[in-house]
Structure formats: structure tokens, C-alpha cells
């Protein structure tokens, strides 16, 4: 292991290390801790200039209660759910299929199509913006969740295909050959042999895509407006203009908006990291 494990070092080094880690963590998360502290203060503290002193009262429930009951926040959150979940399902389903086709079969153009997906995945959003917005307006999906979902599915399919194809490549190919010798139909090989083996990849991708889409801001601004369809990343700006300079509420709102992917991460940590670090180890 590198660096040398601290257990093998002197007692003093161990104690230094163990006190250094929490200290470093606090420093690292300082901006976030500051916001969390803001969100439990009463509004009067800010009016009195008491930003960092002891809170005059503890208002966690009042502040977060107001976020949920006196603003459009719940609507924005629900929109985010209705945009994110169908996108995850759609992109994962499509990429299971493309990944299977590109990972199992040898045909001319296989690598070309694969590299098209990878390249598309790296493209700057702005080169797609005008035509995609135009297309969405033309088919009457501007300012609808469906418009966002369709685009997200298409774009995420690029990344997901890269992921799925490499995952399928690593599966034992003999399994498929054996099935073919037995005369199993191709689509049944996909459904009964490959798909069950892809469960870990499906889990990892679902968590990743959930986070990517939940956190999307650019397309939310380009393709939607107002609380009917906007997800929470875009909604937070109108939330903040509703509560201008009321830092306790803006902080609470931001934390609420950021929370779902954070929960997802802590619940599904293993899958999440497996997905992100795909390819970081050979």
C-alpha cells in the first residue's frame, strides 16, 4: 500500500494523522457547513448583522417548513422527479440494447458507431442548443417535462452506451457461444443470459444518470420556464428572487434542492463509485 500505512509508524504519527483528518474535512466542507448553519438561524439574526455569532434561536423546522409550504419548491422538486426518473429508465433501457449490440456482435461499422456515441457524449451543449430548442418548439414540447426527458434520454444514451458496451465486453463470451450452439434465439440470449448479468451495471448507471439529470441546469433553462415544468435547479433562482436577501430561507432552499442526489449517493455509494471510476483501473 502507498503511502505507508500509519499503523506502521510511530504512535505520535498515528495521533497526528487521526486528528488531522477530521480537521481537513471541516476545512474542505467549510462553505457547506456555513450554509447549513445559515439555514437554522432565524431571519432576525441577519437583520441584526448576527451572521456568524450564536443564533438567537433555533429555527430549523420553521425555515424548512416555510420552504415546503410557502414556496413553489415542492412543485419544482416534483418536476425534477418527473424529469429524472423517466430519463433514467429510458437511457438505461436504450443503452442496454446498444451496449449489447456493440459488445457482442462483430459487424462492419461497429467501432464507428461506438466512437460516434463516445464523441457525442463529449460535445459542448451549446453546439446543440439552437437546433434542439427549435426542434422542441416545433413539436410542441417547449416548456414541458417531456421535451426535457426526450433530449436527456438521447444525450445520456451516449455515455450509457460507452459504459454498457465495455461492461458487456468483460462478460464471459463462451456463455453466449454455448447458448448459440444450443440454438437459443438471439433476443432470448439478450433477455435471459446477458440482461441478468448486467444488473450491477444497470444499478451503477441508474444512480449516475439520476445525479447528472437531477443536477442539470443548462437544458432546464433552455427548454423550460416557470413552475409548470422547471426542475429544482432552475426553480431555485426564482425561489431566491422570492426570498431575496433572506439568507436563512435561501440556504434552506439550496439544501433541499441538493439533497436528493446526496441521499442517493450515500444509499447507493458502492454502485455510484463503481460507475464513476469505470475504466480508472485496468
Amino acid at each position: 500500500m502507498f503511502p505507508t500505512p500509519v499503523e506502521k509508524r510511530s504512535r505520535a504519527a498515528q495521533i497526528t494523522y487521526q486528528s488531522l483528518v477530521p480537521l481537513a474535512l471541516i476545512l474542505w466542507l467549510l462553505p457547506l457547513i456555513a450554509v447549513a448553519l445559515f439555514s437554522i438561524r432565524p431571519g432576525v439574526d441577519f437583520a441584526n448583522g448576527n451572521y456568524w455569532g450564536v443564533p438567537s434561536s433555533f429555527e430549523l423546522f420553521t425555515n424548512y417548513g416555510r420552504v415546503f409550504f410557502e414556496s413553489d419548491m415542492p412543485r419544482y422538486l416534483w418536476n425534477s422527479v418527473l424529469i429524472t426518473v423517466p430519463t433514467v429508465i429510458g437511457a438505461v433501457a436504450l443503452s442496454c440494447m446498444t451496449g449489447f449490440a456493440l459488445g457482442i456482435y462483430r459487424f462492419r461499422g461497429n467501432l464507428l458507431i461506438f466512437f460516434m456515441f463516445i464523441a457525442g457524449n463529449f460535445v459542448p451543449f451549446q453546439i446543440l442548443m439552437v437546433p434542439v430548442r427549435d426542434l422542441t418548439v416545433d413539436v410542441g414540447l417547449y416548456n414541458t417535462k417531456m421535451g426535457l426527458v426526450l433530449f436527456h434520454i438521447a444525450f445520456q444514451t451516449g455515455f450509457c452506451t460507452l459504459f454498457m458496451r465495455n461492461f458487456i465486453r468483460a462478460l464471459p463470451y463462451e456463455l453466449i457461444e454455448a447458448a448459440r450452439v444450443e440454438g437459443v434465439k438471439e433476443w432470448r440470449i439478450f433477455w435471459y443470459i446477458v440482461l441478468p448479468l448486467m444488473k450491477p451495471a444497470i444499478a451503477a448507471l441508474s444512480v449516475l444518470v439520476f445525479t447528472f439529470i437531477w443536477n442539470d441546469y443548462f437544458w432546464a433553462v433552455v427548454l423550460t420556464q416557470g413552475p409548470d415544468a422547471q426542475p429544482v435547479t432552475a426553480g431555485i433562482t426564482s425561489f431566491n428572487s422570492q426570498f431575496v436577501a433572506q439568507y436563512h430561507l435561501m440556504s434552506a432552499g439550496s439544501i433541499v434542492a441538493a439533497l436528493p442526489p446526496v441521499l442517493m449517493f450515500f444509499l447507493m455509494q458502492r454502485h455510484f463509485i463503481a460507475g464513476l471510476t469505470l475504466g480508472a483501473v485496468k
Partner: peptide, 23 residues
């Protein structure tokens, strides 16, 4: 493989490849 690729490629062509050229 063509059948399996079709939906994914179609989506990608409409929303990613063709917009690049249009831009």
C-alpha cells in the same frame, strides 16, 4: 444488432448528431 441499435442510434442522431451539423 441492427434492431438493437436502431432506437438508440435514432434518438442520438435526432438530438445530437444532426443538431451539430445544423449549428
Amino acid at each position: 444488432p441492427l434492431m438493437f441499435l436502431l432506437p438508440g442510434v435514432a434518438f442520438f442522431a435526432v438530438y445530437v448528431i444532426s443538431p451539430i451539423l445544423q449549428s
